[in-house]
Amino acid sequence: MRLSITLFILIVAAPANAHQPVMDMAPRWADGYGFQLRQVHFGSNDLMRGSDSIDNPFGIERFVDTTWLEGVYTFDRSLRMTIKVPYINQRRVAAINGMGVRQQSSGIGDVVLGLPFKRYKNQGATTQNWAITPSIRIPTGSSSGDFPISDGSWDVGLSISHSRETPRLYQLYDLYYWNQGSGKRGMRTGNSWGLDINVGLHPWHNNENNSGVFTLWDISARHDEAPNAQNLTTASGGDRVQTGPVLVYYRQNFMARAEIKLLAYERVDGTSASRGSEYSLAFGLTF
C-alpha cells in the first residue's frame, strides 16, 4: 500500500521550459515580430529510484506531447515581448490501489509571458548580447481531474542569458529559475532552475538567397525541488542532464529547428518515472 501511495504521488515533471528565447536570433529589429510552432515530445516507461532504474511492476509510465505556439514582438533591439501558448496531450499509467491505472488528459496549458531585455554589442565580425528575462506563467490550464494539465498556480521566472556569434560559431548560455506559486487543490510544483547551453557551427551559408544551416550541440541541466506531496501532476524533485544535436535551417525570414535531447543523467527524489529523452521540431517566421 505504501508503495502504491508513493507511486501514486509521482510521475515526471511537467514540461516547463523556463527560458524565453523565442527565436533568440531574431527578430532584433525595431517593430519586428515573429511566430513559431514547436512540437515537443518526451516521456518514458523507466521507473527510477534515485539514479537507478528499478523494476516497474505496475507499468508506470508517462508520455507528453506539447504543441507550443510562440510569438515575439520586438520594440527595439533592447526590448522584446514574448508569449508561449502550449497545447498539451499527456498520458500516463499511475499506480493506484495496487494496480496500474491508465490516465489521459489534454488541453491548453499555462500561458507564459516574457519580457526579454537585451543589450547587444556589435563589433567587427562578432555580435553578442546579454539578456535578462522576467517571465510569468498564467494558470490558464485546467487543474481539474485526476491528471490535470496545470497545478493552477501563478509562477514567476527569471532568465539570464548570453549569446555570441561570429560568421562560423554560435554560442548561447541561458541560466533560469522558476518560482512556483501555490496552486489549486493543494497542488504546488517545486521551484526549479536550469542551465541551457547551445554551442556549434554555422557551416554553410548562401549569400545569394540568404539561406544557411546551423549545427549545434545542446546541453540542458535542470534541478527541480520536490513538489507538494498532494500534487497530482508532477514528479518528485531531482536533477537531470540532457544533451544532443540541434539542426537549424533558415531561408530569408523562415527558420526550422530540429532537436534531440538524450537523457545523459537523471536522479529523482524517491521513486519516479524517468523523464526520458526529448524530441522537438519547430518552424518559425519573422516579419
Binding site: M25, A26, W29, T126, T127, E165, H202, N207, G212, Q252
Partner: peptide, 29 residues
C-alpha cells in the same frame, strides 16, 4: 556593418533598407 554575421538575424536590415525610396529593387534581393 559591425556584427553582421547571420543573415536570418539581419532580415530586418534587409527589409528596412530595401524599403528606402532610393534603392533599386531590381538588383540583388
Amino acid at each position: 556593418v559591425h556584427g553582421l554575421v547571420c543573415s536570418f538575424c539581419a532580415h530586418g536590415v534587409s527589409k528596412n533598407v530595401s524599403k528606402l525610396p532610393f534603392i533599386d529593387q531590381s538588383k540583388y534581393t
